[in-house]
Amino acid sequence: MSMIALKEFKIRWGMAIDVDKCTGCGACMVACQAENNIAPVSDASDKRRALNWLVVYELSNGKAFPDHDLAYLPRPCQQCGTYPCASVCPVTATDKNEEGGIVSQIHPRCIGCRYCMAACPYHARYFNWQDPVWPRGLEKTITPDVSVRPRGVVEKCSFCHHRFMWAKDLARLENREPGRLREGDYLPACAESCPSGAIVFGDLHNPTHRVHQLAGSERAFRLLERLGTEPQVYYLSRRAWVRRQGDNYLPDEKKPLP
């Protein structure tokens, strides 16, 4: 169980990722890197060092051919309601205190102790072991929106928080209430880029948003739900074996599965 009480907000930005619609193409991963100024590396096969805020995992039902089945599961930061990462941060570099319920990561405050990485049950946090290097010319793809992180700090998915700021600014310019954004006003880069529409984003508290309805679907589940982290990322699948892999169930577990 998490050590922090559930922190509630009027708006809870969340995702519903339909695993059944994901083909594992990687468009979301590419969009995430480009949007958030994540430097390329020439040996990306070293998964301990390659840095990605969003990773698409390949799931297998574990059966031999011809009964084999597979699915793809994109994993951003789960933006937990009871955030285990923040409770261990000695310098409050990560917190959850803004309307919307996004777990922040303030890079200049981070001292690189990596306690948050150890605490995160989703492996959604990454440490900059080296300074980011853009080969000559490629630095022209750095956007103005997200600061470039040096070595020695931890980073993670922010649900493209800068896009949240843009959406609020636009609402103010159009004399709309920035605290009542319409569905689609604010979309992270991964949700925007997915060709299959597998990633639905919106306010989990707003009944008019699709994500609210999807989160209540009988197909919905969350990762490691029994840890009590209350993630704001929901997954959907018709397939029982996929839902079962969302948590550490015992082989002979009697408790009903999600």
């Binding site: 193409c25 468009a27 480009a34 080969p135």
Partner: peptide, 28 residues
């Protein structure tokens, strides 16, 4: 950046290749 174009007859999202094209432009 390259983003998806809503309403494009052959679109609906963006492919990883198209999304990665800007880096190719500036490649050394």
């Amino acid at each position: 950046r390259v983003l998806p174009q809503a309403g494009h007859p052959l679109g609906g999202g963006i492919s990883p290749l198209a999304a990665a094209e800007p880096q190719l432009l500036y490649s050394p």
